[in-house]
Simulated assay, not measured.
Amino acid sequence: MSGISRRNLIAAAGGVIAMPGLVHAQAAQQLAIATGTTGGVYYPLGGALANYLSRGIPGMSATVEVTGGSVANMQLLGANRVGIAITQVDAAVDALQGRDRFRGRPVAARAIAVLYTNRMQVVTVASTGIRSMEDMKGKRVSTGAPGSATEVMAFRLIEGAGLDRDKDFRARERLSPAESTNAIKDGKLDAYFFVSGVPTSAITDLGATPGVQLVLIDHDQYIPKIVEKYGPVYFPEVIPAGTYPGQTTPNKQMSVGNIMAVRDDMPADLVTKILQVTWTNREDWARVHSAARDFTLAAQKSAAAGIPWHPAAETFWKGQGASL
């Protein structure tokens, strides 16, 4: 990711926008990719993607934006400040429908690729005595960075477990995963929620800390209640034992899909070029982070995308042999 800058491209361009998230300067195209926090998976994948696109599309200069996560990414996409948003499906559906954080501000988003599965990880350490969602009552927790899909999904899980996010915790912080890990190490936090691909660096860091016994809290039993209210965007999965240092048992948890989303008015030829370059580099992408191994032809399903396909993406994937 050397050479990948993290700046507001739109401000630098004086606000002149010719197409979604793109700025033209002397025939060059600058494309911003909304990712996430540096302790997650979106950021390294987005950085690699920016390199692929910059090398593979003539005249293209792609950069990454560090953000709070999916909700912020979809808001940036809706404001035409980025060209690509890496996002969880639940946030994309909320954005398209103008629900929750997008109330009154729906985003005309379209999927161009299904990437991998994000896992809800409820993280603590043995010394806290927390072994279940119910044990978190009266504890100090973090529900994720502001503007993150972690926050949205954490609130839904807390609700599904019968807890009140505003009343049942001794303190509720809104920290990034890296900040949460450091706060647990310092004895200032008891548990945190984080939604990401696995493994993720912040949790690996916590598990590898000397004298710390990592604990991941099971919560799959609450999924039916959550789906009943919010729709079939969540599903149960298991994080195998040993995924993280010190993780001695499988973690039964709630998962959600990740997609690459663009605005519905992104030109078809640009969507096609983005997908051609990304698909060509898929093996290298999987070396950047193992989560990208799930970026496969079989994964390209309309049900997994959650929101409608961009017509050019639908054409591209059908041309590759996907059944969608």
Rank of each mutant, 00 (worst) to 15 (best):
T204M: 10
M153I: 11
F169G: 02
L77M: 02
V262I: 12
K185G: 03
Q88G: 14
V227W: 01
A286W: 10
E314V: 00
F102R: 11
P250W: 15
I17Y: 02
A28W: 06
G68R: 03
E283M: 15
W317I: 02
L115A: 13
V227H: 01
V233L: 06
T87N: 09
R263V: 01
R81T: 01
R55W: 02
D190C: 13
S5Q: 09
M1D: 04
S127W: 13
I84A: 07
G147E: 05
S323I: 03
D284E: 15
L214C: 07
Y244G: 01
F194I: 14
Q75T: 06
T280E: 11
R165V: 11
R156M: 01
I239C: 07
V122T: 10
V93R: 10
R156G: 01
G187L: 04
A299S: 14
Q26R: 12
Q300G: 01
T209G: 03
V125W: 13
I259H: 00
G207F: 04
N51H: 04
D94V: 08
P146D: 12
R101N: 15
A312G: 10
V256S: 00
I259T: 00
G39R: 03
V89Y: 00
E228S: 09
S61L: 11
Q26N: 14
Q29D: 07
Q253V: 15
H289S: 03
G319E: 08
P311A: 11
A92P: 04
A109G: 11
T272P: 03
Y192Q: 07
S54F: 08
A126Q: 15
I57R: 06
S196Y: 06
N80L: 00
D94L: 12
M266V: 09
T272M: 07
T128D: 08
G160D: 03
A48K: 00
V212G: 02
G211A: 08
L157S: 04
M60H: 02
V141T: 14
H310F: 08
E179N: 13
D168C: 09
K252P: 04
A62Q: 07
S61R: 15
K137Y: 07
A305F: 08
T272F: 05
Q97H: 15
A261K: 01
A32S: 15
A27E: 13
K273W: 01
E173D: 15
S176V: 12
Q300E: 11
M74I: 02
G21R: 09
G257W: 02
V125I: 14
P311F: 10
A313P: 04
T67K: 05
S142V: 05
L96V: 13
W309M: 10
A149G: 15
A303N: 06
N118A: 12
G207N: 06
G129A: 14
R156D: 01
M260V: 03
E228N: 11
V107H: 06
L31S: 06
V66A: 13
R172K: 14
L270A: 02
D265M: 03
Y52K: 03
G246V: 12
D186V: 00
T67C: 04
Q29N: 13
A72D: 13
L9A: 05
E134Q: 15
Q75D: 02
S201Y: 10
D269N: 09
V238S: 08
P232M: 00
P210T: 09
A298N: 06
A13I: 06
A171D: 14
A72K: 11
D284T: 13
P240A: 08
A11G: 09
